[in-house]
């Protein structure tokens, strides 16, 4: 009967659309990453370019505070060596963070930065940071890691304090590789 073949043909087409749309959901992942890359949103793991104006604005003082957190299920301790700095906008500064693995196995972690106020993020230029790569810590290992940054002098005048906060998260896949499993 032709009606039955018609129905089956349409079923095939519609089911194909459903399968394609399932794939489309996954295709949104690279698409999203590309859009973020092109528009410059969400660049966590790359060094920033120096600000156009590198002249330190010695007429202004900024308080930069440093914060450190450890995500769930990561047996590490993590803290900034200096908790705050007073600098001029445009002045190159370096601080050190200290991280230690208290477990008896190698673990891979990734630090994710965030900023307070969030608006300050675009003016916070990190030239060197341990957050650009994953950190694999051996059992009992203690590591001191630098962050080199400049705060763009374009930072609006009403911001007097900027907080840089990192959270270390465990990276399961890399941890398994590090353990050689």
């Amino acid at each position: 009967m032709s009606a039955v073949t018609d129905n089956r043909a349409l079923f095939g087409k519609l089911a194909t659309v459903a399968v394609i749309m399932f794939g489309f959901g996954y295709a949104l992942v690279p698409l999203y990453e590309k859009i973020c890359e092109v528009t410059g949103v969400n660049r966590v793991e790359q060094a920033d370019a120096l600000p156009a104006n590198t002249q330190a604005d010695t007429s202004r003082w900024l308080s930069v505070e440093f914060d450190a957190n450890v995500g769930r299920g990561l047996p590490w301790s993590f803290k900034p060596v200096e908790t705050s700095l007073n600098i001029h906008p445009g002045q190159l500064a370096q601080v050190t963070y200290e991280v230690a693995n208290h477990s008896d196995r190698p673990i891979a972690g990734q630090a994710i930065p965030s900023y307070g106020p969030a608006y300050a993020a675009r003016f916070f230029k990190k030239l060197e940071c341990f957050c650009f790569t994953q950190q694999v810590l051996q059992p009992g290992e203690v590591r001191r890691m630098p962050v080199v940054f400049v705060i763009d002098p374009e930072l609006p005048k009403d911001i007097g304090t900027v907080t840089l906060s990192y959270t270390f998260f465990v990276v399961e896949g890399a941890t398994r590789d590090a353990a050689g499993v």
Partner: peptide, 26 residues
């Protein structure tokens, strides 16, 4: 199907070490 994809990604993030939504893994 797009919702199915989204929850499948959540499931693999939870149990199979993918990092679609996990900031630590990119």
């Amino acid at each position: 199907p797009v919702l199915a994809g989204a929850v499948t990604m959540t499931l693999t993030d939870r149990h199979f070490g993918t990092h679609f939504f996990n900031a630590a893994g990119g």
